[in-house]
């Protein structure tokens, strides 16, 4: 039950990383996917990131009831929780919904309309042509989106804190810049790359092995999002356990 799909997934990945037929065709596809996955997701990532920062600030301030704890800690907590957890993980879950479902339904539709068969007949390595550019594009663009997310989250926290009076601008910025551990950014980037790979490869796997018609394409798309989310959270824990 578990090993059969895992084996198929690994075999698909082996096929994905075969030598491309023509690199310049793949390069064009990679840029197209970078635009679709990266540029096309900036809006949603920006919106959720600002609100993430705002909510984190307000809720942290709410829990700080002791006068012994300086208010500047709010800035540190927002910074670290954003970099270590919220930006990479929440962004990845949102991207699993947006990008993952799109990849799965696109490849699934190609499967049920015999477009993948047409590629195979032409002598093209269909997993490589369809999936490799998406994986490369996501692995490049998702970390960039997460960097944007971190910046906007911290700014959102500043906005909410100062507007609501939960923390002063000076305290927030003091907390933000004190005791910063650069390694947290490394953890953030490792997570981003890993999540990008999970989102694209799991969605592509679900789409590639779609069988049937429109209904099954929908089912594959839903399954792609569910499995990706579980895999993201599981690998989030594994990375945290290994690196921190």
């Amino acid at each position: 039950m578990f090993f059969h799909p895992l084996g198929k997934y690994i075999l698909l990945l082996i096929a994905v990383f075969r030598k491309p037929e023509k690199w310049n065709i793949y390069r064009k596809e990679i840029f197209r996917e970078m635009n679709s996955i990266g540029v096309g997701s900036v809006g949603i990532i920006a919106i959720i990131s600002v609100f993430l920062g705002m909510v984190t600030t307000v809720q942290t301030a709410f829990q700080l009831v002791s006068d012994l704890v300086p208010r500047s800690i709010i800035g540190s907590i927002v910074r670290d929780s954003t970099i270590l957890e919220l930006s990479p993980t929440i962004s990845a879950i949102v991207l699993a919904g947006k990008v993952g479902s799109s990849i799965s339904s696109q490849i699934g539709t190609m499967r049920v309309t015999e477009q993948i068969d047409a590629l195979e007949i032409m002598g093209i390595n269909s997993p490589g042509y369809l999936i490799l550019p998406k994986i490369i594009a996501a692995v490049v663009m998702v970390p960039l989106l997460v960097i944007i997310s971190v910046g906007l989250s911290v700014w959102g926290g500043y906005l909410a804190g100062t507007l609501s009076g939960a923390v002063t601008a000076y305290d927030y910025l003091t907390g933000l810049t004190s005791e910063f551990v650069p390694f947290t950014v490394t953890v953030c980037m490792v997570k981003s790359v890993l999540f990008a790979f999970i989102i694209t490869s799991v969605a592509a796997y679900q789409g590639f092995y779609t069988n049937g018609g429109a209904l099954e394409v929908g089912i594959s798309s839903t399954r792609a999002v569910v499995v990706s989310c579980i895999m993201i959270l599981f690998s989030d824990y594994v990375v945290a356990q290994l690196l921190l």
Partner: peptide, 30 residues
């Protein structure tokens, strides 16, 4: 497979490409 041409039941044209790009696709690849 480079020596094979196939017409599928549902035509299996690539939806995201124009007619010209569809016909040119194997030429671009090989």
């Amino acid at each position: 497979r480079k020596e094979i041409g196939m017409l599928f039941q549902g035509s299996a044209l690539f939806d995201s490409m124009t007619v010209e790009e569809n016909v040119m696709f194997p030429l671009n690849m090989f």
